[in-house]
């Protein structure tokens, strides 16, 4: 009988008063063809808070993020093992409607990617296909509130019929956030949402994230340590496909317990 190597131990520091769990992941592995990108990640993500995923490129943080709304399903040859639940419900259950899941778990990408449609239609698209609006007035209301929640309404209210692609980068990203909010998701996943934005637009998006967390569970992947420190309540550090350490953000950035976390956040990674 051969002995298997000792299982990888994630260093965990619980919150002083933990939030109820929104997303629970248990032993999540992702294999792209022959390459294993994630080696069993387990984490509880608290509701109505911001959780930041940090780590060097290729550490698996985006891969894990994409598991939460089954985006990896769209990649040929990708295999996901382990279990992820949303409010206790297995999201990889074969009976589950993936389209419905993605309405509950919205996503904002690195590069703002508005549809080549008007500002109004960008936001109205989701509610239309999910049949969320009963009338034209209903739809208008959804679009306006979503734009307001995304702190964009005042800047675009007079040109809702103009193309979304005509907005500045920062506005486009907030439009994408409005589009995600429009279908009333419970969770918003953000994959480096500010990496293509200037500091002012970044500050606006960060301000927005802080406001959104009162109603939504947010998971953000970022390469900016300062951004993770500013916007999140909990931080998870990934390295080489493992979840190395997770804990309260204040704790991770002032006094991390794992040497690799320390080396990464202080810029000592070789």
């Amino acid at each position: 009988m051969s002995s298997s190597p000792a299982p990888f131990q994630t260093i965990r520091t619980p919150d002083a008063s933990p939030r109820p769990t929104k997303i629970h992941a248990d032993g999540v592995k992702v294999i792209y063809g022959t390459k294993q990108a994630l080696h069993g990640v387990s984490i509880d993500i608290g509701e109505k808070s911001v959780t930041a995923f940090i780590g060097p490129s290729g550490c698996g943080k985006s891969t894990f993020l994409r598991c939460i709304n089954r985006m990896n399903d769209t990649i040929v040859g990708a295999r996901v093992e382990g279990k992820i639940t949303l409010d206790g419900e297995d999201i990889y259950n074969t009976d589950l409607d993936v389209v419905e899941l993605r309405a509950r778990v919205g996503m904002v990408f690195q590069k703002p990617n508005p549809f080549p449609k008007s500002i109004f239609d960008n936001v109205a698209y989701g509610p239309r296909i999910h049949g969320l609006a009963k009338s034209k007035a209903d739809l208008e209301e959804i679009v306006v509130t979503s734009l307001q929640k995304a702190s964009l309404y005042n800047e675009v209210k007079d040109r809702l019929q103009e193309p979304g692609t005509g907005l500045s980068g920062g506005q486009q990203q907030r439009l994408c956030i409005a589009r995600a909010i429009a279908v009333s998701p419970e969770v918003i996943l953000m994959d480096e949402p500010c990496s293509a934005l200037d500091p002012i637009a970044t500050a606006k998006v960060e301000e927005l994230i802080d406001e959104l967390r009162t109603n939504y569970t947010i998971v953000i992947v970022t390469h900016s340590m300062q951004q993770a420190a500013r916007v999140s309540q909990r931080t998870a550090f990934f390295h080489l496909g493992h979840l190395v350490e997770e804990g309260p953000t204040d704790h991770i950035f002032t006094n991390p317990l794992e040497q690799r976390t320390q080396d990464y956040i202080t810029g000592r990674f070789g």
Partner: peptide, 10 residues
């Protein structure tokens, strides 16, 4: 300049 973290900040 460096926006220090963890041990460097301390």
């Amino acid at each position: 300049k460096r926006q220090p973290m963890a041990v460097d900040l301390r």
